[in-house]
Nucleic acid binder design. Structure first.
Length: 813
RNA sequence: GGGCCUAUAGCUCAGCUUGGUUAGAGCGCUUCCCUGAUAAGGAAGAGGUCGGUGGUUCAAGUCCACCUAGGCCCA
């Protein structure tokens, strides 16, 4: 037999073999006769051997043998036993059994009624009366024992073998598996109840329920409750010399049993151990057993122990069981289990309904954080650098809560800039223009239905976001909720505010009311994620009108389903896709957005039915005079391309899909398109499949103008910009140049956004004079000029590269 | 040794439940545009064997099996 722990050979009690494996009696080249598992013989006796006999392991049962050492007395032992866990992958197929030092050994030896003899003291040293190694630390005894084995001729081979061995995580002392009597809770008796409780529990992620945690319950073993320590909750069991036991339930009961008032005694060691009582059964003196209770029991008792139940009940009944518990995945066999086990034992109900099981955070290289490696990121330091809300938002929304995640400064700084700061700046914007307009959030506002389309869109989006965040949080999915909020903030800032700025400059109550409401919903939805920022925003913007001092005292926002307009959402999405294409076309054409263009042609399903307001959004954003539908123009100007829509075709044609797709690609696109448009369907010749009927759903059509346009298209939608710049358009472009330059000068001069100015201009260029004649009023309105004067004047010079002449402004006092 | 999870761009992560032909976002990088809230915003570009192998399927990042690597718990 072989072992990696020679010190346990002193306690050798039996040898285990695998009953179903074949064993061989062999003679080695040295003439020695040995028994080993047959399939391992070749590896052990590489110099050759002769098989004298062979038999299954089961035939070896109860055969006696001489043990390696006779240093301690082990009666009625030392024969071969059968154990299924023995393998013939490694070693000799003969497994040394020392039941005091291994759980498997203990189980198999107990099955044969073998004694459990332990010559090692609790301090890890051999008993003093053991010959040769008496008083030696267990791990230090190996050397002497191996030498003694060698001397006695019983050592077959001694080799270096690398294997893992448990050590104390703090002082690195080798640890010992050590059998000792313990107190147990018979949790196996409530195994079915535990499984039933688990069935009634929601796990996030769901795989844990029947995976890691379910497996653990299925393989439940009794809870080893006692610990041989000093600190801890003393096990409240008293025992007399006749082994009668009494379990004590309270200090009052203990006083009664002891015959004196001990209620003032500290119920911990050493004081509680001074209390003795006459045994209720035999009247002999009973003393407390020395063990304390596993501290994990205390953790599982938290739900009732924390409120002093049953001595004081408080509102315990109302708060049990808890709605949810949130801990990291390593607590599966820890707190999750103790809470469920004790709850089920005591109240026949687990102490929680939902579990959010977090993954661990890792360092930036994906390693787990540990003091040992020095890669620990201090949470307080992260909060000092980025803010507590940033750290919190990142944890909740920056990835799956239940997945291990890398954490670093960069990732957290990112969410601040991207989402939190954008939110904050939008709030600042609303605050600024609300103040300038002396707008009162409690005052009357136009009904939502009477507001411009973009306002109705924003209110609809806010309610959609609210609705979807609500449903994500119902599923404990903070990541999805966070993404929905972040997307909405982006839409809010970079579409609604961007497109609506002018209305805020004018103090439009509809715009102010709309943004106020959108921010109110956002702030409420974000409050659980970023409690500090939202609280500040709430107090600044909402507390006075909402009648609630704190966002955390406000009710969760209720979705107004009547304000959700899915078709408007769909239409606005189309508008934004067309705008994106238009920007791309602008960029490739080299004509800057400041230069107005006369017209664009748009080809996209649904464009023609968009409201004029929405089409105007595209014109405004892209600085166009008009945007018309392409298919109203001369068909000869249009290039048509058609691609197969595999998703639609696949469900119809299955295996033949590629044939149809090829046929569509080969067909005359213009003819196919006009046939589908006029008749709703068209025919293509698909090889051996013959004639196949195709409808609009089966294809993706892209139409683009042929010549003289800047074009961008994607996914069947396209926009073409007419690049012809008339003198009129050119002068409009120059006016925009002037506006931009004046704004920049205002900003550089430190003027406030609401400051009024006086403007002077002078130029000898006829074209520029013409431009001023046509656009002066428009420029004045844009730059808040109370007067536009032709001539030299003004304090702050404005430099405009493309506009010859002199421009200057002065702040109005 | 067992159970469960994870692997997608240089980095951090979506997408996988319900398979569809140009695989997305942000950060970083290059070029350009815009700017009257914004440490902002927009466009174009470079950057991907979707860990590997095999299978199912007309079609696989997505479904299945196995393997490799990492993580957690247990032995």
């Amino acid at each position: 037999m072989w072992t990696t722990t020679p010190w346990t050979l002193v306690s050798n009690t039996a040898v285990a073999v695998k009953p179903t494996a074949m064993y061989a009696v062999v003679r080695t080249v040295d003439g020695e006769v040995l028994v080993v598992a047959e399939e391992l013989a070749a590896g052990l006796f590489d110099e050759g051997f002769t098989v004298l006999d062979r038999m299954p392991g089961s035939a070896l049962e109860r055969i006696a043998y001489d043990r390696p050492f006779t240093l301690v007395d082990i009666p009625d032992a030392h024969y071969v036993i059968l154990a299924d866990y023995v393998t013939t992958d490694d070693g000799s197929g003969l497994v040394h059994q020392a039941p005091a030092f291994g759980a498997d050994d203990l189980v198999s030896c107990r099955a044969y009624g073998l004694p459990v003899v332990n010559p090692v003291r609790p301090d890890g040293h051999f008993d003093d009366d053991v010959p040769l190694i008496g008083g030696v630390f267990f791990k230090k005894a190996d050397e002497a024992l191996v030498a003694m084995l060698d001397a006695s001729g019983r050592l077959f081979r001694h080799v270096q073998y690398e294997h893992s061995y448990p050590h104390c995580w703090r002082c690195h002392t080798p640890l010992i598996y050590y059998a000792q009597p313990s107190w147990y809770i018979r949790t196996t008796a409530i195994k079915d109840d535990l499984i039933a409780q688990n069935e009634a529990t929601n796990w996030f992620p769901s795989t844990i329920k029947h995976g890691r945690f379910g497996d653990w319950l299925e393989n439940n073993v009794d809870w080893a409750l006692s610990r041989n320590r000093y600190w801890g909750t003393p096990l409240p069991i008293w025992r007399c010399e006749n082994d009668h036991l009494v379990a004590v339930g309270s200090m009052a009961e203990l006083s009664e049993l002891a015959g004196r008032d001990v209620s003032a005694t500290d119920p911990h060691r050493p004081y509680v151990d001074d209390i003795t009582l006459p045994c209720p059964t035999c009247s002999a003196v009973a003393t407390r057993v020395p063990e304390v209770i596993d501290c994990w029991y205390d953790s599982g008792a938290m739900p009732f122990a924390a409120v002093g139940y049953p001595h004081e009940s408080g509102d315990f009944a109302a708060q049990y069981p808890a709605d949810f518990i949130c801990e990291a995945i390593d607590q599966t066999r820890g707190w999750f289990y103790t809470l469920m086990a004790i709850g089920t034992l005591v109240f026949e109900q687990s102490s929680y309904k939902n579990v959010v099981c977090l993954g661990h955070i890792l360092d930036e290289d994906g390693r787990k954080m540990s003091k040992h490696l020095g890669n620990v990121l201090e949470p307080i330091g992260l909060m000092d650098d980025h803010g507590a809300d940033a750290v919190r938002w990142f944890m909740l929304a920056g990835g799956s809560p239940w997945q291990a995640r890398r954490v670093g400064h960069g990732a957290i700084a990112d969410v601040v800039r991207k989402t939190l700061l954008t939110y904050w700046n939008t709030v600042a914007f609303q605050s600024l223009y609300g103040r300038l307009a002396e707008w009162d959030p409690a005052g009357p506002a136009p009904a939502v239905a009477d507001r411009p389309v973009i306002d109705r869109w924003l209110i609809s989006e806010a309610n959609r976001m609210n609705r979807d965040v609500d449903s994500a949080l119902e599923q404990f999915d903070t990541q999805r909720a966070g993404r929905l909020i972040a997307t909405f903030i982006d839409d809010l800032s970079n579409w609604y505010v961007r497109r609506s700025r002018r209305r805020f400059w004018d103090g439009d109550p509809a715009a102010l009311a709309t943004l106020h409401e959108a921010l109110r919903i956002t702030t409420l939805c974000m409050a659980p994620f970023t409690p500090f920022i939202t609280e500040r925003v709430w107090q600044d913007l909402f507390a006075s009108s909402a009648g609630t001092d704190s966002v955390h005292l406000a009710s969760w926002p209720q979705v107004d389903a009547d304000l959700v307009d899915e078709s408007l959402a769909h239409d606005m999405a189309l508008v934004r896709r067309i705008v994106e294409l238009g920007r791309a076309a602008r960029a490739t054409s080299g004509v800057r957005t400041r230069q107005p263009l006369g017209r664009a042609l748009v080809s996209a399903p649904g464009w023609a039915s968009l409201s004029a307001d929405l089409q105007q959004q595209v014109c405004d954003e892209l600085n166009l005079v008009t945007a018309a539908a392409l298919d109203t123009e001369d068909a000869d100007l249009v290039e048509v391309s058609i691609k197969a829509n595999f998703r639609a075709l696949g469900s119809r044609f299955g295996k033949q899909t590629p044939l149809v797709a090829t046929a569509i690609g080969a067909a005359d696109a213009t003819a196919l398109q006009s046939a589908i448009r006029s008749a709703g369907a068209a025919q293509v010749e698909a090889a051996e499949l013959g004639t196949v009927t195709i409808t609009a759903d089966d294809v993706v059509v892209t139409e683009t103008p042929r010549e003289g346009w800047a074009v961008a298209s994607e996914g069947g939608e396209s926009i073409a910009l007419d690049l012809l710049i008339t003198d009129e358009l050119r002068r409009a472009g120059l006016a925009r140049e002037v506006v931009r330059a004046v704004q920049e000068a205002r900003k550089n001069a430190g003027f406030e956004v609401a400051d009024r100015i006086e403007l002077w201009w002078s130029s000898t260029d006829a074209d520029i004079e013409h431009m001023w004649a046509v656009h002066a009023d428009e420029i004045a309105a844009e730059v808040l000029a109370t007067s536009v004067t032709s001539g030299i004047g003004g304090e702050v010079a404005v430099d405009v590269v493309d506009v010859p002449g002199v421009i200057a402004i002065t702040r109005t006092r």
